[in-house]
Design a protein around this nucleic acid. Structure first.
Length: 361
DNA sequence: AAACCGGGGCG
DNA sequence: CGCCCAGGTTT
């Protein structure tokens, strides 16, 4: 036997109580006096949303007033020269968005008779309007039910449901959109959406959420965990991998063995020191070059940063004897340590050779 | 100094 | 899909 919708104890009844708690919080603590709320026309909501994509409310407010005074309608915006639109945007940054706004206004003038379309897909097709901005215009400006998921709402939902994973990943975003869809009501949808944005902006803040002020505290998995600030999962740091190598400073009298690197790849074509695995026996590496090690000493490691990885260089200084067959190769030579500037070498190799020169009388 | 932010564009 | 970008603000 199916439960009646909204009957006590059902899932839907629980969702309705949650929505009621959010709306009650909004009535008391939400933001009701934002400039674009009076009146909340589709055009004003659109412009405010685009401005708010990149900037905080306090900064946006004066820009919004100036923009509306100069471009009171989509048609006024469409008819203006792009240069003038950009001039009123100056200081907000992300000027591609002002250009998109201008282009979209011209679409609205030419295709929709100067009024924003009341269709969600048509809104989303306009340049600079994605799924969330379209939802905001549709709900806040057009009084329809539509789901939004901006940065504030993402944070609230990710904490509330302890959604793991960076929201930039498709699978995580899908889960958050599904949660947003699940809770968004048909009744008072605009207030609900505004409430979620306000909650994220004023209570469920990134670093130090004010959980004691939150209507969702009792239901919130993030709060229950004791570490609500752990959500949303931060964007994975493009932490450059750290690699290790051994560089062999093979010194024979006042000369040092240099090898030319392959033409492509790291330090392509430059002269460098022979390399070996860090855990390899340097004596056998020298032996492979036909050299006998008389004396060995470890030098402190160097860290070198490339664009896509970091390299810890573990130098070992080896005084060697024996001619070595290595010099027969065209990409290997014995270089005087007093004249290492004659060869093109990578920066860390140059530092090592400099150090070698200092330590050799 | 680094993280953040919605949408667009690219491979 | 995953990745990068724009630029001013927050932390």
């Amino acid at each position: 036997m199916a439960d009646r919708p909204g009957a006590p104890g059902t899932e839907e009844e629980a969702v309705n109580r949650t929505r009621a708690a959010i709306l009650a919080w909004f009535d008391r603590h939400g933001r009701h006096d934002l400039p674009w709320q009076h009146p909340a026309t589709p055009y004003r909501v659109w412009v405010s949303e685009v401005m708010l994509q990149q900037t905080q409310v306090a900064t946006v407010v004066p820009y919004f007033h100036r923009f509306m005074r100069r471009f009171p309608s989509p048609r006024a915006l469409a008819d203006a020269p792009q240069e003038e639109v950009l001039a009123l945007w100056a200081g907000l940054g992300y000027y591609a968005r002002a250009r998109n706004l201008h282009r979209a206004a011209q679409h609205i003038r030419d295709q929709y008779g100067g009024e924003l379309p009341a269709d969600l897909d048509a809104l989303e097709a306009l340049p600079g309007i994605g799924r969330s901005t379209a939802g905001a215009i549709h709900s806040l400006g057009q009084g329809r039910r539509a789901v939004i998921l901006d940065g504030n709402v993402k944070r609230v939902l990710a904490r509330w449901h302890a959604v793991d994973g960076w929201p930039g990943r498709t699978a995580v975003a899908r889960r958050l959109w599904a949660l947003a869809e699940h809770y968004t009501p048909a009744h008072r949808c605009a207030d609900y959406n505004q409430a979620m944005m306000d909650l994220g902006a004023t209570v469920c803040t990134r670093r130090t959420p004010r959980c004691h002020e939150c209507p969702l505290q009792a239901r919130c998995a993030g709060h229950a965990s004791g570490r609500p600030e752990a959500w949303p999962t931060p964007k994975p740091k493009r932490r450059r991998p750290l690699r290790q190598t051994r560089m062999l400073i093979l010194q024979h009298g006042d000369r040092v063995l240099l090898q030319r690197r392959p033409p492509s790849g790291v330090w392509g074509g430059l002269w460098s020191l022979p390399e070996a695995a860090v855990d390899a026996d340097p004596k056998s590496a020298a032996a492979a070059l036909g050299l006998k090690v008389d004396q060995a000493g470890h030098w402190p490691p160097l860290r070198h940063a490339f664009s896509h990885f970091e390299l810890d260089i573990h130098p070992i200084h080896l005084r060697v004897s024996g001619a070595g067959q290595a010099v027969k190769e065209s990409d290997t030579l014995w270089q005087s340590i007093h004249d290492t500037g004659a060869r093109a070498v990578a920066a860390p190799v140059a530092r090592l050779l400099e150090r070698l020169r200092e330590y050799t009388p």
